[in-house]
Structure formats: structure tokens, C-alpha cells
Design a protein around this nucleic acid. Sequence first.
RNA 1: GGAGAAAUGGCAGAGUGGACGAAUGCGGUGGUCUUGAAAACCAUUGAGUGUAACAGCUCCGGGGGUUCGAAUCCCUCUUUCUCCGCCA
Length: 424
Amino acid sequence: MLSIKYILENEEELISKLAVKNFDANEILDKIKSISSSKKDVKQNLEYCQAEMNLISKEIGMLYKTKQIVEANEAKKKSTELKEEIKNLSKEFNNIDKEFNNLIVQLPNIPNDLVPKGKGEKDNIEIRKGGTIPKLHKKALAHWDLAKKYDIIDFELGNKITGSGFPVYKGKGAKIQRSLISFFLDQAIENGYNEVIPPLMVNEASAFGTGQLPDKEGQMYTMTTDNLFLIPTAEVPVTNIYRDTILKADDLPIKTTAYTPCFRREAGSYGKDVRGLNRLHQFDKVEIVQIQKPENSYDTLNEMLEYIESLLIKLELPYRILTLCGGDLSFTSALTYDFEVYSAAQKKWLEVSSVSNFESFQANRLKLRYRSKDSKKTQLTHTLNGSALALPRILAAILENNQTEKGIKIPKVLQPYFIYDIIN
RNA sequence: GGAGAAAUGGCAGAGUGGACGAAUGCGGUGGUCUUGAAAACCAUUGAGUGUAACAGCUCCGGGGGUUCGAAUCCCUCUUUCUCCGCCA
């Protein structure tokens, strides 16, 4: 959520910057401007009446104390009128405020200057590449066939138990999942992140805090009886740990990591995009989250970028890093880098991580502030997060890229966790 | 699931209709003393909104009500604790 102060003071800039996200802010901005001015008027009026009322009430108290009953009753009459007026004004104010909030949450975050213009995927800009794409033997299989061949992932069984997009990992398939999770968590901890295990369901306030509500409601599984949501990413519960808090400047940055399953409805997905592990309704992910001072947040973003890159290098996977263009950038993000690994049998780049700086957009919704030493006022922090990493597509790439005629070789860094060095 | 009790500032904890944004203690910050630190002492210390700065306004778990006036009374919801029941 953008602050109203910024919106009103930087109208031109806002319009041109949101245009990068292909968002036409003109109309909504006009509405916001007019409603915020009438909000101010009504509020002033209301506060004036409230002040008057407070005065009269005190007066009446005094009059009663000095037994001036007649005067007190006279004053009471006056207060009755005021009371009615206050009631009406606050009703009006609440309506305006509601409408105002409704509008202001519709404005997406402002993209950073580094964000290229563009409509979609094709306009994302590759900033670097690493690793080597392996040459596979002629009988190389896609991961869904490998999964069947070695009996490590059972998609049909998942269909039976739940539905498509909920695979069952078996034997060494289950074990490599655990190995990856442990590897990612240990790496994060080594890099100064504090591990937490958060709830997998969140309430409405949390879903709103990180921006899943109101705009991404359809992507979450909802438990209507209890009004809870299954988390689409650990970002939601982890960032909400700090909802409604005021941190000390010395506490920053706060680095948190968490492994959680993630649940996504993926409404509207179809075809080969959803084949095998490419897109699931339930998947595992290790997430890293940082809360940082505004002046340091872009250095932090780069640090996170390098950290995630180091994971892919250690896993010996071919990867590329993209800067998302305006059209591909999420509602809440100011700058996002995507990581993709090359899955050699599918001959396809698969997104395995997304690392973003949300600046103060989430913090404003979360009321996540900090107090710097030199100022009395609190100010909003910046929040950042990234996947480090999402498991299924990493697994898909490992299976496909590392397949040999004897079996699937396990990357060296995973061997201490996996014990074996091959799946056969 | 049933019965009872409770929810107040960073924390602990007073406050049962008017001078309460709220005693007191701890903690935090600044200072005195000290070579420095500790102790002691002094001062200061909730958030939001608003203002050029004041003022003003809102907030005592959430929502609603009674009253001229509510942290305080009533209703309701949520959460926590204790006891009972069920259960991993």
C-alpha cells in the first residue's frame, strides 16, 4: 500500500512510473484526490464537534459538583444536539474512509527505475547466466518418465488421494526432498538467517498484510468455516511475524528463513506447463525474508541475489537470472529478479526462485516500523524476500540433467544428506 | 466440547462513572558522579492523526450500547488462563 502523502505529493511521477507496470493510474488517482480532500473536511468537522463535546461534558461535571443543577440541565440540552451531529459525521467519515481504503489498496507498488518496460515474459531481461547445459544421451527422458522409471514420484497416486498437482514422493524421491530442504536450510542458517517453523494457515489480517488480499484471493485455498487461508508461500506467515511492530534500528536487518509446503490453486493453468513437477498445487519451498532499513534495502537485494545464485552453483545447475519487466512484476514488488534453471530433457527454462524488494509497500500494510536513533518518529521498514529455493523444479532439473544410463547422479553437496550418490 | 476467571503502555501491575493517555516498579534514552564502567541520583520516555510549530482529535483485546461524560456499567465476539471431558 502506498502512503497517501506520497500519492498526493508525487502525482506525475506516480502516473509515469505505474505506466511501466502497464497500470493506468489517472482515473483512480482523480478519485483518490477528491475523496481524500472530502475525508479531510469531514474529519476536521468531526474533530471540532468532538472537542466541543468534551468541553461541555467537563463543564457539566463541574456544574453538578457545585450543585448548579439548572445550568447543568441547560448544558445537557446543547450536548444532545452535538451528539446527534457527531453521530452523523462519524457515520459519514466511516463511509468515506472505507471507500478511500478501497481505492488506495488498488494501487500497485511503484517499480524501481531498473525495471524495464514490457508486457510479459518475453520482455524480461537476462542479467547473467551460469553453469553448463549438459548433453544428454539419446534415450534421455523427461523427469515425469524418470520418476516412473525409478518409482520415486507417483502422480497417479496423488490424483487418487487428492487430485492433480498433489504428487506422492516415494523412497529415494522422498529422501531427496528432505535432503534438498535440509541443504537449503543449513545454507541459509550459515548465511545468518534465523530458522522458524510458522503456521501453514493464516488469518485474513495476515493475508492482507503481505498483499495476498484483496487482489490474489483466488490463488489461495480458503477454509471458509474458520476463515483461514492455506499459505501460498512462507513469505506470508514469516513476514507477518512482524506485523504491527516497532523495531529498533539496531535490530535491522532481520533475516529469517523457513521451510514450508506451499499451496496454490493455480486457477487458469493448463497444458504442458503443468506436466509433472512443473506446476503443482502443493510444493515445498525454503524461503528467505529480510527486514531492512530503506537506505540499505537494495544492497540487501543484491546480497540475496548472490546468495541464491550460490545455491545453484553448488547444485551444479545451469541457470540464468532475469530482471522482471513491468508487465511481469507482481502487484506488491518494486524490483524482482527471477532465477531459472535449464531442464535439459524438456529443453525448457523453469522458474525456481523469485527475489523481490517490496520497499515499504508491505510494511505500510503491516504497520512494520522502526525507530532510528536520531529521530523521534517511527518510519516504515523495507521488506524483501526470495525463494531459496522452490523444490519441485529444482528436482525436475536435477533428475533430467543428471541422468545417465546407470541412473541419476546426486550433486556432491547433497550427498551428505542423501547418503547415496545415485538414484537407480 | 462444558464450567469459571481474565485481557490496561516495551514488560509487570494499579485504576469500578468526571481532573486518566492512565499511579507505581522494571526496562529504554539523556545527564550528574567516575580515567572508564557498575551502583546511586536527576531528568525524560506509548502510538496514530494533525499543525509551520502549538492546539485539537482517536486509541485501555475487537465490535456495539447506556450516559452530558466510559479503561471503569451493559451486550457481543475473539484470545488467554484454571478445572472437567475428549484426543495426538
